[in-house]
């Protein structure tokens, strides 16, 4: 009897620890975000810092986005053709490729790649800076690490994501076009005409853009916070990097569902 009571109390203790830890981190990440917002004006007046980060966050991610976009588009073309040809409606291939990429796959897959390629790098970089006490050193020199290090990275991630998602979708549509029209013989005019007829500028295109902006914001925020909040050991940096990718990917997938549900409901 005594044992069972002890065990139950232990369970509650663990649950309590987990909950306080969760709320503490949520609170810390919100404070972190508000400090980033306060520092953004200082990053804007030093555009060179942002350019440097745009290079490492955006430019270095282009290759993976280009390759992934082309292959995803080609698979969509192939698979879509195979399904649509059964209903004799392969001329709607453009609709399928366009809508899928612009609304869903473009923003989501780009955000996942972005979290894996750029987010992990950001987390590892910040984590290592924290482990080697570089933030404290900066503060000693009266340099605010938020203005100097974190805000430029946040801006770069925020700007890069929508551009990367647009590149992904555009390349993917041309990949689908290549497979569908050049290889499988779908009519060229029908491909574009059907696509234009069904992809609405406000409902679909802008929806995709808003999604990519949201994902860029969330993925960069998570990556930076995980890095800044690292346990300052080599093991801690490793764990933070893993967590950054896992949390950002899960957040993107969950947010995507919510955003899709919200926008489809208003139709």
């Amino acid at each position: 009897m005594q044992n069972i009571v002890c065990w139950i109390i232990n369970c509650f203790e663990l649950l309590g620890q987990w909950a306080t830890h969760l709320f503490e981190r949520t609170g810390r990440s919100a404070l972190f975000l508000s400090r980033i917002f306060q520092s953004i004006p200082f990053a804007i007046v030093r555009p060179w810092l942002v350019f440097q980060q745009l290079y490492s966050v955006g430019v270095l991610t282009i290759i993976i986005v280009l390759v992934a976009g082309a292959f995803v588009g080609m698979v969509l073309g192939l698979q879509g053709y195979n399904i649509l040809v059964r209903f004799n409606s392969e001329s709607s291939l453009g609709t399928m490729v366009g809508l899928t990429l612009v609304r869903e796959l473009g923003p989501v897959v780009t955000a996942l790649l972005f979290a894996g390629r750029a987010g992990s790098a950001l987390t590892a970089e910040l984590g290592l800076m924290k482990t080697t006490d570089q933030f404290s050193a900066m503060e000693m020199m009266a340099v605010d690490p938020f203005k100097r290090v974190i805000a430029p990275r946040f801006l770069a991630g925020f700007i890069s994501m929508p551009l990367l998602a647009a590149i992904f979708s555009a390349v993917g549509i041309y990949g689908g076009y290549f497979v569908g029209v050049a290889l499988l013989g779908v009519d060229d005019g029908a491909f574009w005409a059907q696509m234009q007829k069904s992809v609405d500028f406000h409902e679909d295109f802008m929806n995709g853009v808003w999604k990519s902006i949201t994902f860029g914001f969330v993925a960069t925020w998570i990556a930076l916070f995980e890095g800044y909040d690292t346990v300052p050991t080599s093991e801690g940096v490793g764990r933070a990097t893993t967590q950054s990718v896992v949390h950002a990917s899960l957040a993107v997938l969950a947010l995507n569902f919510i955003l899709t549900a919200l926008t489809l409901e208003t139709n």
Partner: peptide
């Protein structure tokens, strides 16, 4: 890419 999507893909 945004421009292509807006002009060529959407309506």
């Amino acid at each position: 890419a945004l421009f292509v999507l807006a002009m060529k893909v959407s309506n």
